[in-house]
Simulated scan of single mutants.
Amino acid sequence: MKIAVLIARILLGLTFVVFGLNFFFNFIHMPQPVMSEKAQAFSGGLFGSGYFFQYMKVIEITSGLAILFNRYTAFFLLILFPVSVNIFLFHTILAPAGIPMALAIIVLHVFLGIAYRKYYASIFTAVPVV
């Protein structure tokens, strides 16, 4: 199990670091996939905000590095979970060409969430006592 968690952690961390850095430095030249009108409108709105993608990519890079170096991993998995879900839903609903990568990201993320579940136990306390 430890080896599977290590491999999943490295794959997920590298994915977020590499694609986050690629946003800023464009070292992986990927052709723009054909997207539906709704997908273009969604992406255009996020890009049009002028800050959202930059902010998200910085979070992806820092979280990915923390996951790679196994520092505050449970915390950064929690931070990245909404990003992974959004990637999965975007490609499932609006841009199906990216489903394989989106599926890999969500599977790795859920697997790591299960592996680190003991660190999340206190979050799911219904009535916390102070």
Rank of each mutant, 00 (worst) to 15 (best):
A4G: 10
L6N: 11
L6S: 12
I7Y: 06
A8H: 00
R9C: 00
I10P: 00
L11K: 03
L11T: 10
L12P: 05
L12K: 02
G13Q: 05
G13E: 04
L14S: 14
F16S: 05
V17D: 04
V18M: 12
L21I: 12
L21W: 11
F23Y: 15
F25A: 14
N26Q: 15
F27E: 10
I28S: 11
H29L: 13
M35N: 11
S36N: 04
S36P: 00
S36T: 08
S36G: 06
E37N: 10
K38N: 14
A39Y: 08
A39V: 09
A39H: 08
A39G: 13
Q40F: 08
A41K: 12
F42D: 03
G44S: 08
G45R: 12
G45Q: 11
F47H: 13
G48P: 06
S49G: 15
Y51C: 02
F52R: 01
F52Q: 00
Q54S: 15
Q54I: 11
Y55M: 15
Y55S: 15
M56N: 08
K57G: 03
K57Q: 12
I59Q: 03
I61C: 07
I61D: 02
T62K: 00
S63R: 01
S63E: 03
G64K: 00
G64T: 03
L65F: 06
L65C: 11
A66Y: 03
L68I: 00
N70F: 09
N70W: 09
N70V: 08
Y72K: 11
A74T: 06
F75H: 02
F75Y: 05
L77M: 03
L78Y: 11
I79C: 01
I79M: 04
L80T: 06
L80Y: 01
F81T: 11
P82D: 09
S84Q: 10
S84T: 14
V85Q: 07
F88V: 07
F90E: 09
F90H: 13
I93V: 15
L94I: 04
G98K: 03
G98A: 03
I99D: 04
I99A: 05
P100G: 09
P100N: 10
L103F: 14
L103I: 07
I105P: 01
I105C: 01
I105H: 02
L108D: 13
H109W: 10
H109C: 08
F111E: 11
L112P: 01
L112S: 01
R117I: 13
Y119S: 13
I123P: 00
F124N: 07
F124D: 05
T125N: 10
V129N: 13
V130G: 10
V130F: 14
V130A: 14
